[in-house]
Nucleic acid binder design. Structure first.
Lengths: 343, 343
DNA sequence: GTGAAAGCGCTAACAA
DNA sequence: TTGTTAGCGCTTTCAC
């Protein structure tokens, strides 16, 4: 066995006394090879510890088995659940994953995607933070499929898998209304990603349906800075009687921050303020409080994305758009306030 | 602009009317090129949307800029914090990451590593679950550096970055003893990964130092099944007066499970039983209880691993072994029981 | 400064 | 069945 460098197909050919092409045939098993030769080749492969060089193979076949995955944050369970489901599906088809995080910086995402393209990925899957589809549209010439997961882009029609953010948001807001709430605050992020805008729209939609005017004072922007600060500011800027009776936090991070802010002021949920969340947070036990929330099945979302990606790589056709419906899980973080509301 | 396939260096050469080698020189900027030619080449590159093919370049230069990262679980924050730190460091040197999870299955880890080797990675970084170093030792011939993070292997001397599990474990056990605890249970995992065995040893060491005999009834194996079950079983198998007064959970997952089990039985921490943890869990606020724990700086661990990996790729030499010291953070999850203990 | 040509490891005609 | 050969896209001598 050679201790330096790696064995190549040539080494195997030489050692087993056959041609280089025959070795290739044995490895790929796509052409008939005599039993004797096959055995000899495998023996040589074992002896040399030979491993086929995948990039070299890709170079020749013009087919890559690497998929680029772009998430917002590696240390956010939300995205990693997504990736876990995605990877589970992709590995079933022998694809590998190259991953990076854009941390909500469109330029960073741009650079990452460029890097992945240069690395000859078969497809790119991203939870994009692009403000629009301009960049991705310019990538059409590469022939590399772009799959959007979780977040979509209005002006870029491509394969995508996402939740029905608008309707789920409408439904959970509706739930608050049905429990008698009228002063409902929404704690949202920057309205540049589709999940934020759609959830915002869903909130407004629900209010509109029952004729509640949207009150700008209750629209909390946690886009810059934390929802902790935003919530604190909301409560401090308003006299207590005008406080919202319920708060709708549009993602898990913001829910944590908001709850934290409420706790810090000694407020109870739902005693003082009701809280609902888009997406669950991970502290069900130890607390009496169970969060009423939109239940996101990230694993499933990731798997669907994986499945769709493989299909897209294998064949062309119209963009496939999948929208998954999310159910609302009732906890006890919402108080019914029929008694205390005016008719 | 071509809409099918991708532009190659040849296309650029043709369009800019220069030789293929000159294009390469312009891109890499490693040889002198006249200003006029350089401008022409860049113009062609822009016009064609040309992107250099990294795998092809690697094939020629025999240098890859891809690093394989193997973790135990993509959806475990512990590992992803590690990866986050690692990626932050690696991207500074223009390396990319291909990632996969072994889910504590040595065979799966084996397959992943093989896949990465075939993909011509420059190095492999793993939170290994191999029972021993046999497999990795056999990889010496590939010349691909193997870097162990968090978990190390006794019989495989290689580059590694880990915490001082033994001593931190000894110190936190010691802390319990100093607070008057004598019946101290340890909730550990399978003793095949170094972190588990070292933490176990540290526990025994601390007991031994003060002459407390290790009581097998207090050594809880949460290796198969959850720590929730294991803890429940412990409490049910023992009459209450013989219950441990303190429990030491050797990682974040087990701490969560154990706390959950205690809560489920209506026991309070530290009122009924004190709890310490190796690694923090993420529910500091909302609860009066703050966990006394060994503070792990995963981000730092990941960065150190990234730095070490780059150094190893760039140059040879003896294996580098880094051991980071972890401090103990005092919360209020430990009760001092001097009063209730016999002298 | 620049181009022609060889070759990285591999696959797929094309011959034999 | 099998070997020879021509590239895949790129870098790097080697001439000029």
């Amino acid at each position: 066995m050679r201790t330096d460098g790696k064995a190549t197909i040539k080494d195997v050919a030489k050692l087993s006394g056959v041609g280089i092409a025959t070795v290739s045939r044995v490895i790929n098993g796509n052409y008939p090879v005599s039993d004797a030769v096959r055995a000899a080749v495998w023996a040589a492969i074992d002896q040399l510890g030979y491993r086929p060089n995948v990039p070299a193979r890709s170079l020749k076949t013009r087919k890559s088995r690497m998929v680029g995955v772009v998430v917002a944050d590696l240390s956010n369970l939300f995205f990693m659940q997504l990736v876990k489901g995605f990877e589970a599906e992709l590995s079933r088809y022998n694809y590998s994953i190259i991953i990076a995080a854009h941390y909500e910086d469109p330029l960073r995402e741009h650079d990452i995607v460029e890097m992945m393209l240069e690395n000859d990925v078969a497809a790119i899957v991203t939870t994009t933070c692009q403000p629009d589809g301009a960049y991705f549209r310019g990538l059409a010439g590469t022939g590399v499929p772009i799959v959007l997961v979780d977040r979509v882009l209005n002006d870029f029609k491509t394969d995508s898998v996402s939740e029905d953010n608008l309707d789920a948001s409408r439904r959970i807001t509706r739930h608050l209304i049905e429990q008698g709430h009228r002063r409902i605050a929404v704690v949202n992020g920057t309205l540049t990603v589709s999940t934020s805008t759609l959830r915002h729209e869903g909130y407004l939609l629900a209010l509109g349906e029952v004729g509640i005017p949207a009150d700008p004072r209750y629209i909390v922007d946690a886009g810059n800075g934390t929802a902790f600060q935003a919530t604190t500011k909301l409560l401090e800027s308003l006299p207590r009687p005008e406080w919202p009776t319920a708060m709708y936090c549009t993602n898990n991070r913001r829910t944590e921050d908001t709850l934290h802010a409420l706790m810090a002021r000694g407020l109870s949920v739902p005693g003082d303020i009701s809280v609902v969340s888009y997406g669950d947070i991970s502290l069900p036990w130890m607390l009496e409080t169970r969060l009423t929330h939109v239940d996101q099945d990230l694993l499933a979302l990731g798997k669907r994305a994986g499945d769709l990606t493989v299909r897209r790589i294998r064949s062309g056709g119209e963009p496939m758009v999948e929208i998954l419906r999310s159910e609302i899980v009732l906890g006890n973080s919402v108080r019914s306030i029929w008694e205390s509301v005016d008719p």
